[in-house]
Write a protein that binds this DNA or RNA. Structure first.
Lengths: 134, 134
DNA sequence: ATATATGCAAACGCTTTGCATAGAG
DNA sequence: CTCTATGCAAAGCGTTTGCATATAT
């Protein structure tokens, strides 16, 4: 290469070290800043896109219209916690077996799926809600 | 009321008459135009939001970040055709039974879900692909 | 008069791109 | 010299809002 890709590398390191699951660009940008890496937003964007294109991370978009990035490991689905807003990974609930009947009956071909559950994550279930005693 | 809601009414009529399933604001705006209803984009937006708030229609947002509106009937999921781009309704594949184990094991509570399948819709499977002979 | 519907134009939020610079090979 | 990474600033795109006007009750 012609220049050391500081941002890409830092992003990957970050995502591997921290537990935070799905990162918005803003999350990534802020996390880099905490580590004294004052990257520009566009650089974070480009680095994330590049990593996604390379298959290192995965990009997904939620109902709220904001992009999220996560490490690209085994397929899993997500739970969007309506209380804390986190996008929590959950094991995939759907396999080919679930699609066979539909494909046959509806005459469609299913190649992939994207499932987002809405509900309350484990952490929020064990913690009193924010305004509980206020 | 204080003024006849032309746009809202027209939208509802439109969505009930045509088969087009999930409408973007642009779709709605264009369809109204075809019917000589030159509504402003913001009016279409406001009318759609109002109908959604009233429970007549449902608003959803896809990976592409664009809002879609559809008549609010029985819950169903969607197939996003990667060939023609349509968002086709398919019967819901997930019921409480699918969530029980996950809720128990992961300690979460699931209230709703949003499933989008990716694949090829029936129409596209029976028609040669756009660039097939070109 | 009052309350809702609409048009017009501008603001917004997030994403994306153009252009110039920097630095490694 | 060439090629990629980065910063800065601005453009894009779809959505949303502020304000003035129109109209039915």
């Amino acid at each position: 290469m012609a220049r050391t890709p500081v941002v890409s590398t830092a992003l990957l390191t970050l995502m591997r070290e921290r537990h935070h699951h799905a990162w918005t660009l803003e999350d990534l940008h802020a996390a880099l800043a905490e580590r004294e890496i004052a990257a520009d937003f566009s650089s974070v964007f480009r680095a994330a896109e590049k990593l996604a294109a390379a298959g290192d991370i995965r990009k997904l978009t939620l109902e709220d219209g904001r992009a999220r990035f996560e490490l690209f490991d085994a397929h899993h689905d997500h739970l969007h916690c309506t209380r804390c807003g986190e996008l929590v990974p959950v094991p995939c609930l759907l396999g080919p077996g679930n699609f066979a009947a539909l494909e046959r009956e509806a005459g469609v071909a299913i190649l992939d799926h994207h499932l987002v559950l809405s509900g309350i994550c484990r952490d929020c279930r064990t913690v009193p809600s924010p305004g509980a005693s206020a």
